[in-house]
Write a protein that binds this DNA or RNA. Structure first.
Length: 280
DNA sequence: CCAATTTGACCATC
DNA sequence: GATGGTCAAATTGG
């Protein structure tokens, strides 16, 4: 197995964690904090995915994900889950509970033995960009403010979310105080033979949880709506800007992501945002 | 009017 | 046959 990409991801995660630690000594904006945390999580997830992909696909290179022989059956699609605990001092119009992607709900089901129904979401761009990522959201029995979120498949679509996040940092909104108090606690997730994936929960104060399931989806879109071009425009841009260069690697979205903002240290974020604005 | 959600029906798997 | 996952027509909402 090629060690270097894995080392890079882990090193990146360590560096980001160090940055976060450094910034925690000072006053750090919630956006900066969230930004760093997201990057750290991405790095670790990326690294773990590499390990997992190697096991599942018998040491194929990472872009084997996109090969025509890649098994698209649900059984072999990447799967991981996390628990999200919701909190807020006030009920929020725009939920902070987005995971950076836009989802469309396509079903809901009562689950045997569970007190709460399970909601099914798929990527908004499924039809246009063929993105097969899905997720399931279900309120846990034990704590109604904790949601189990299961993801299946990686996003192969291009989302405007990274741009929006950058812009959010540039122009913080007033509702930032409503953001969840996020405390990450890593734990191993045993997904049977699916391998290990990180799971984390957002610790916070209790909240009225009515309709919060929907916020998992709405939150993202409400943030990104102003930025999102239509799918057709987006795909046109893809075609014209990156002809013959689409790899469909399982990590492509992450690579884009990393290329976009990790080349800048945190102190240079404003600079990168300026660039992002020009793109938008 | 269009797009997202709801919800019962249908399908696949065990 | 029971259960979970997806489809798609109907409904809702901006």
């Amino acid at each position: 197995m090629e060690k270097r990409p894995l080392m890079n991801e882990l090193t990146q995660g360590r560096e980001l964690a160090n940055q976060l630690k450094h910034h925690l000594d000072q006053t750090i904006s919630p956006h900066t904090c969230e930004f760093l945390l997201q990057k750290i999580l991405s790095s670790y997830e990326n690294a773990l995915s590499m390990l997992n992909t190697t096991n599942v696909l018998d040491a194929q290179p990472s872009n084997s994900y996109s090969s025509p022989h890649y098994n698209k059956k649900r059984k072999t699609m990447e799967k991981w889950s996390e628990q999200v605990k919701v909190c807020s001092s006030t009920m929020v119009e725009t939920s902070p509970l987005s995971d950076g992607y836009s989802w469309r709900k396509y079903g809901q089901k009562e689950i045997l033995g569970a007190n709460h129904p399970r909601a099914y979401y798929r990527c908004t761009h499924r039809n246009v960009q063929g993105c097969l990522a899905t997720k399931q959201v279900q309120r846990t029995d034990e704590d109604p403010s904790v949601f189990e979120v299961s993801y299946r498949g990686r996003h192969t679509c291009i989302q405007a979310t990274q741009l929006s996040k950058a812009l959010e940092m540039k122009k913080p909104k007033k509702e930032e105080n409503k953001c969840m108090d996020r405390v990450f606690s890593f734990k191993a997730y045993k997904g049977g033979d699916e391998g290990l994936f990180p799971s984390f929960s957002f610790a916070s104060t209790p909240i009225e949880t009515e309709k919060l399931e929907n916020l998992f989806y709405v939150g993202c879109d409400s943030i990104t709506n102003n930025l999102q071009t239509s799918d057709s425009e987006l795909s046109d841009q893809m075609m014209s800007s990156t002809p013959n260069s689409v790899t469909n690697s399982p990590f492509e979205d992450l690579n884009l992501d990393l290329d976009f903002d990790l080349d800048f240290s945190l102190d240079q974020v404003d600079f990168s945002v300026a660039g992002a604005e020009m793109l938008a």
